[in-house]
């Protein structure tokens, strides 16, 4: 196990290298630069700005300098937000997104798995149709429609929650539901499908024949194995929602990192593009590692040698 984890961590090096090179090349290949504006600046002014941010260095040097900074956790200045460094932006904005992501993921996990479980156990019953109906709705309604709808019902009409902004636990509820619903729906559908397959396996029949209680069979023997496919998608999903949802953060005016994934590209804010992309890559790799570890816990047949 230890050796496995070390090996996976070492794999990070080539992954980060490849992701950083691709991102760096792509962002410089796109036309337009950080100082292009509706009011075109004189070339002399652009030269001053390029010199200030070392954008007049050869590209290979810019890359090497950036990566040298990256390994020392110095992510450079933001070109669009001149008084802040990328470290500042990540330190101030990412925890907000992480908090929203955790809440959404909890809703997805603790809502989705029970829904799927009920559906599978009571297959073709009213409960099954109801929970699959909810899942279908959750998957089909996009965030940009669900968010305003929840605001209209629960903030404007019922006045239970604030319309938008951030700052207290009550501010987390509506955006977390908006962001978590689609994930909840896919977890529910996957849990159901996986459970239906597992409960037809021989070892479940064996357990039943031995007289094990129905709930024990379902929760201990069936669900545990049924969760393997769920954990496979849970990892990347978690990485996704932990690194930001531009749309939900925008609708609810949440000071998260999601916006920077989009605006940094529009602004050609090179250091922010690099940092947000690499953080996302790191999150995906890390979550996939956790998923692999969780396989071993869920299914004793899986070993790491």
């Amino acid at each position: 196990m230890f050796e496995f984890i070390v090996r996976r961590i070492l794999w990070l090096i080539p992954v980060i290298f490849v992701v950083s090179v691709i991102t760096f090349v792509l962002m410089h290949a796109v036309p337009g630069g950080p100082f292009d504006a509706e009011k075109a600046l004189p070339q002399a002014i652009i030269d001053n700005l390029n010199a200030k941010y070392h954008l007049d260095d050869p590209l290979w040097k810019q890359y090497v300098d950036y990566m040298y900074g990256f390994i020392r956790f110095d992510l450079g200045p933001s070109i669009s937000y001149r008084s802040r460094t990328v470290n500042d932006i990540l330190a101030q904005q990412w925890p907000v997104t992480a908090m929203l992501g955790l809440a959404s993921f909890a809703i997805a996990l603790f809502g989705g798995i029970p829904l799927g479980l009920i559906s599978a156990i009571k297959q073709n019953s009213l409960a099954d149709y109801a929970s699959m109906g909810i899942s279908m709705l959750g998957l089909s309604i996009p965030n940009m429609a669900l968010g305003p709808l929840l605001i209209w019902i629960f903030a404007l009409r019922l006045k239970w929650f604030p319309v938008a902004t951030w700052g207290s636990p009550i501010h987390v509820v509506l955006p977390a539901i908006t962001l978590g619903t689609a994930y909840m729906a896919s977890f529910a559908r996957l849990t159901r499908a996986s459970m239906l397959q597992v409960i037809r396996e021989d070892y479940i029949q064996t357990a039943r024949a031995k007289g094990v209680k129905h709930t024990t069979v379902m929760l201990k023997h069936a669900l545990r194995n049924a969760l393997i496919p769920v954990s496979t998608i849970a990892g990347p999903s978690f990485a996704g929602i932990m690194t930001g949802s531009m749309i939900v953060e925008r609708i609810f005016a949440i000071p998260g990192i999601g916006k920077y994934y989009v605006t940094s590209v529009g602004n050609r804010d090179y250091p922010v593009i690099m940092a947000t992309t690499l953080v996302f890559a790191l999150a995906v790799v890390f979550m996939n590692m956790l998923v692999d570890i969780s396989y071993g816990i869920l299914d004793p047949r899986i070993r790491y040698n």
């Binding site: 305003p148 605001i151 319309v163 902004t165 925008r250 609810f252 005016a253």
Partner: peptide
């Protein structure tokens, strides 16, 4: 608040 419709609701 960047989203104009959110500002309008507020």
């Amino acid at each position: 608040i960047e989203e104009a419709s959110t500002a309008m609701t507020m």
